[in-house]
Every structure is written in structure tokens, then in C-alpha cells.
Nucleic acid binder design. Structure first.
Lengths: 158, 158
DNA sequence: CGATATTAGTTGACGGCGCAATGACCTCGG
DNA sequence: CCGAGGTCATTGCGCCGTCAACTAATATCG
């Protein structure tokens, strides 16, 4: 199956390249699954839910347009609609109509949402620290950031 | 919200730690989504489907127990049952009963499955190379492997 | 100004996946 | 040899997410 001779032939991954790719694939799958489990068990939250609470808590006035939320969480508009609906039913978020664009909707963090985030953040951060941060040297930490940025840029510009 | 004073207080992520974590989170999400799109568009495959074909193609006799397949793909038994059913309906895989354990099932790659893999692999590999491998220095490649291993070990041993 | 294209958000249909329960089978200690 | 407990694969159920279609509002351009 491997053939380096022709001009349009496939440039297969070398052993070390494949090792890196699979290590990334497997470790991130495990990491996300583990974090999801931790959040579900300790706080009855999804990583998605948590992400939404965080983004809103960081936004000016604790509110964001649905579209912005979709962009920030790398999700789709419909995904955000449903996630915000769930969060709204749980009381963590409230929908506020947009003044300057009558099509628009803002999701706004409620007091209960802030409290929920405050209650779940320590456990989540602890998990991220244990499973990821503590496994890295300072140099690796920087390189991970750099790698992530480059991959994001590459994909964005395609 | 931040408070370093007490004994049981939360050890928040520093700026660089958070940057690394978010870079990893976002870049891998984008990467997986982009690879899924590429496979779907060019080969009408999921990354999961592709992974199953690869694992079977690497196994002795092109067959694996359902349990082994679940372990290798970091999925659940039920997930594998459904994925194999889909692959079977597409003609890429055949179920073969297990000789030495009458509970057991083997998933076996068919000729059509091998052909499907051969047809889709080049495009997939090209995408992985463009989006990930080419963005890395040789050193980063090695560190990514190392980081992935450590994260996997940490989570496995919990 | 008015027609057309674009954008925001929602919804219905659909698919993938995990959990828990199930039935068949294996294993091992007494 | 038998029964308790574990394992294998499957399935029903429900959740979550995407795609495509839709409505409403805005932007653009002749």
C-alpha cells in the first residue's frame, strides 16, 4: 500500500508522526471524557454547559449574543440555542431581547448561574490541573499553547 | 472569587496555564471537526468508522473481538456494536462468531472494507499532515507524544 | 425607494453515543 | 458438579449535537 515513487502518491505518516497523532487523538478523547464525567458526577453539568457559563461570566454585563456564544464555544447556532434553553430551564441563564437588532437575542447569566459556576469551578479546575497541567513541564505548557494556536490558524484559514 | 489564603482553597489556573488548556481544547475540537468534515465529504465516513477500519486492518487476520475494538477505539461496547452494525450494512465488515467463546463476536474486515480504507486513507492522511504534522517542529512532535502518553497514563490509573 | 441577498435565531428530523438492564455464556470455589 | 459472580454483546432509552428548512429582520445596491 505504501509507495513513494510516483508523483501523486500518498505521503504516509512516519512511525513517529503516527505515534504523535495517535497520542494526541487518544489522550484528548480520554481527557475530555474524564472531564465530562467529573462535571457530570460532581455538578451535574456538561463540559458544554460549563463552557457557556464561563463565557458568559467573562463577558461584559454577563451577556452575549447567541451568535457570539456559538463562535466562542466552537459550536453551531442550533447547538447554542438548545444549550441555552437547557441552561434557562435550569435557571442559570436568562434570554434578553436585543435592543439594536430586533432579530437578536442575548443570553445573560443569572445570579443562580453565577452561583452554579462558583460551585462547580473548583472541582473542574482541580481535574484539569491533575490530568493535564501537572503532567507538563513549563516548556511543554508553552509549546502546547503554540501548537494549538498554529493548528487553529491553519484550520481557520482554510 | 480568587482566594489563595485558606488551606482548602482552589488552586486556580494561571494565565499561561489557562492559555494552554484553552488552546488544547479549542484546537483539538477544531481539528477533529475538520477531519470529520473531510472524511464525510470525500469518503462518506466518520472518524469513528475510519478508526474501526484501521484497527481491523492492523489486526491479525483482520479481525478483532468487539471488546478489543471498544478498548482500542476508547469507546463503549454499545458504541462499537452500533458502529459495527453500520459498517456491516455498508459491507465493510462481517461478524464472525467466536470459536473459543460462544458469547464472543469477531468483527472482520471484508475485501470491500479494505478497498474502502485504501480509497479513503490518502485524503485523510493528507489532511492530518496539513493540519497537524506540518505545524509542528520535530521536537514538538516528540513532546506531543510524550504529553499524550502521560495524560493517558494519569487518567488510566485513576 | 424597493428588490434582493444576507444574517439571527429557532425548530424538526435525524444520527451517534453512553448508561443501565438483559440474556447468554464462562469460571471458579466449595 | 453446581451455583454465584463475572464477562460478552446487544438493546431500549434518553441526551446531545448537526443539518436543513423556516421566519423575521437587516443590509446592500441598482
Amino acid at each position: 500500500m505504501r509507495d513513494e515513487s510516483g508523483s501523486g502518491e500518498t505521503d504516509w505518516l512516519s512511525g513517529t508522526e503516527q505515534a504523535a497523532w495517535r497520542a494526541l487523538l487518544d489522550s484528548t478523547r480520554m481527557l475530555f471524557a474524564a472531564l465530562d464525567r467529573q462535571l457530570a458526577a460532581d455538578s451535574d453539568l456538561t463540559l458544554t454547559d460549563y463552557d457557556i457559563l464561563v463565557r458568559l461570566s467573562e463577558a461584559p454585563n454577563n451577556r452575549l449574543r447567541m451568535r457570539e456564544l456559538a463562535d466562542l464555544t466552537l459550536s453551531t447556532r442550533s447547538g447554542v440555542t438548545r444549550a441555552v434553553t437547557r441552561a434557562e430551564q435550569a435557571g442559570w441563564v436568562r434570554r434578553v431581547e436585543c435592543e439594536e437588532d430586533r432579530r437578536g437575542m442575548n443570553a445573560e447569566l443569572t445570579e443562580a448561574g453565577r452561583a452554579k459556576l462558583a460551585a462547580s469551578a473548583p472541582g473542574h479546575v482541580r481535574a484539569v490541573r491533575e490530568m493535564l497541567i501537572e503532567q507538563l513541564t513549563a516548556e511543554q505548557l508553552g509549546q502546547l499553547t503554540e501548537i494549538g494556536r498554529r493548528v487553529q490558524d491553519k484550520i481557520t484559514l482554510k
